[in-house]
Design a protein around this nucleic acid. Sequence first.
DNA 1: ACGAAGAATGGAAGCGCTTTCATTGTAGCC
DNA 2: GGCTACAATGAAAGCGCTTCCATTCTTCGT
Lengths: 341, 341
Amino acid sequence: MADYEKIKQNTASGPVTLADIAKLAGVSPVTVSRAINTPHLVKPRTLEAIERVIAKTGYVPNLLAGGLASRKTRLIAAVVPSVASTIFAETIEGLNAELVSAGYQLLLGLSGYDLSRELELTRAILARRPDGIILTGITHLKETRAMLTGAGLPIVEIWDSTPSPLDTAVGFSHAAVGSLVAGHLLIRGYDRYAQIGANDPRAVQRRDGFVERLKGIAEVELPELEMNSPSTFRDGRVAMAQLLDRGEGSLGVFCSSDVVAHGALAEAHARGCKMPDDLAIIGFGDFDFAPHTHPPLTTVRIDRRDIGTKAARSILRKIDGDEDVEAMINIDFHIVARGTA
Amino acid sequence: MADYEKIKQNTASGPVTLADIAKLAGVSPVTVSRAINTPHLVKPRTLEAIERVIAKTGYVPNLLAGGLASRKTRLIAAVVPSVASTIFAETIEGLNAELVSAGYQLLLGLSGYDLSRELELTRAILARRPDGIILTGITHLKETRAMLTGAGLPIVEIWDSTPSPLDTAVGFSHAAVGSLVAGHLLIRGYDRYAQIGANDPRAVQRRDGFVERLKGIAEVELPELEMNSPSTFRDGRVAMAQLLDRGEGSLGVFCSSDVVAHGALAEAHARGCKMPDDLAIIGFGDFDFAPHTHPPLTTVRIDRRDIGTKAARSILRKIDGDEDVEAMINIDFHIVARGTA
DNA sequence: ACGAAGAATGGAAGCGCTTTCATTGTAGCC
DNA sequence: GGCTACAATGAAAGCGCTTCCATTCTTCGT
């Protein structure tokens, strides 16, 4: 009687459970569990019967219960600063594609370039017991680090390089990017050098690499402007105006992103600067619009999607117990020389 | 002895449980649960003691267990076609901001404009028992609809309008957008009218609205080109070349996105078309670069972020048991007239 | 035809919480 | 002072699954 009502209620509305399926298929719950997770352990005939019942009832397993029991959630969390600023969006796509095809799901956190928000997100994420976590950058609050290492799960830090990652890192050296850009500009030779950039740790590292390479050769000018990440078209335009007003002579500028570079370019264009002779602009990211600006933007290209793909693969290998995952996976970058430098 | 070992093991490594905290604080598990979820029900002295223990041990509650017991996961899932194509990225940001501030987390699904992928994602998502789900568009496979309605959770469909949503919808009429654009072009008056667009349901609706408005006035030309969503700069460029090669006379073109419009613009620019007299181009989305093309792009602006914000608010209200949530929440759009039309 | 080995299935316990209901503390009031 | 009312706490059950171990079926070799 109680059983009847239960089954009746269940087939009528939502919460069909594994036990219901078992009852309906005339097997025990364990068998149903196996039919779902390890079907090769179930005799074809029973398997078929169970699958029929599942299809009929529209049963959807409860992964909360499953995760609690098995301590495996098939969830991977990723924290990125933002997803609207294109730069990380493709990484997320790459990540997601790889995870989904391995049967995992993506829990997304947006930190807004704010480390204390990253900490809160980390706490909230850990509460869901993901099988792995992916963080942007290698700069974290010490509480975040402690919480993370204490949780004992695979961690991948992306978009930066370090000899001592928390666990594994997939990225590249931003200082090296800055240095490469300086070298590129140096070959042409300009009277003045400047950098326009935001204040997130990676943009700062690119600037430092740029400055370092020019040390003893030229002083790198910086516009007086508070530019918070993500920096905007407008930031670039205003900054470029300052730079142009401030002095004479040919100018080589490194921008912290293509968006900023685009703004700088607009200002230069409006003033009729001759590029790349009087003015050089190099962006960062090789965004979609970069080949289509006037003149087309010279920029640093890195495979943003690939960072996501590689991060996913690393974390999946770690989850599978592979001990040999490289601690630091380097991503290539290079300058795409177009019209502005 | 067993207890000692358990506690010892737990303080040493990860899995501290609520029971451990209770033991350490000298209270029962229920009290700890209350201290975390409904602290006002706990005497300040005990609360403080418990919080001290939590801080010391670095305890992070297990939301899988909590969700299983309470049937509330504080998880909201969202399925969008893509996140790299800017159009939905801001919606996700708006959504996420609102959800996080209400104590919820975002489970992200990317369908790639593929309905059967949407179905698979839905199944996987439902298995996590989210408190609500957000889907892009109003076109779904019937299995998806069945699964969704059977699950009995709040649903919000975004980025489209319909008199009969699955539950609640937040968006606007794409046909009306197409119609509005046609009207705008009609005022200037062109010899020919064309549409360049992708094949996702919403782009198709915009085209249909465009065609409908021009019915009896002009035949709308379409380039011969398979354009899958998301369509690209290159698509726009190639399509525009076709259109320009095909006939004579002034031309008014509606593009299914600003990216496509940008490509079309590049081709027109290269050929020296005079805009907006000989050629008009209207995009869709008002992307960041739209004001900065040459000439600046005329486009349809809608508040992409606001869709996310409103969707989040609707679903949160539904979760709170509010019965009066409007079934259809309309989002404004308007033409931003710049240089190309 | 019989036992051994492996295939297929089941029983019971438990994952870490929340819920409901019951119990004990603590004021407050006449 | 004694009773009521509410505040504060606790005991027990259970959410829906998986894991471990035990049991029952098959199949095969000889």
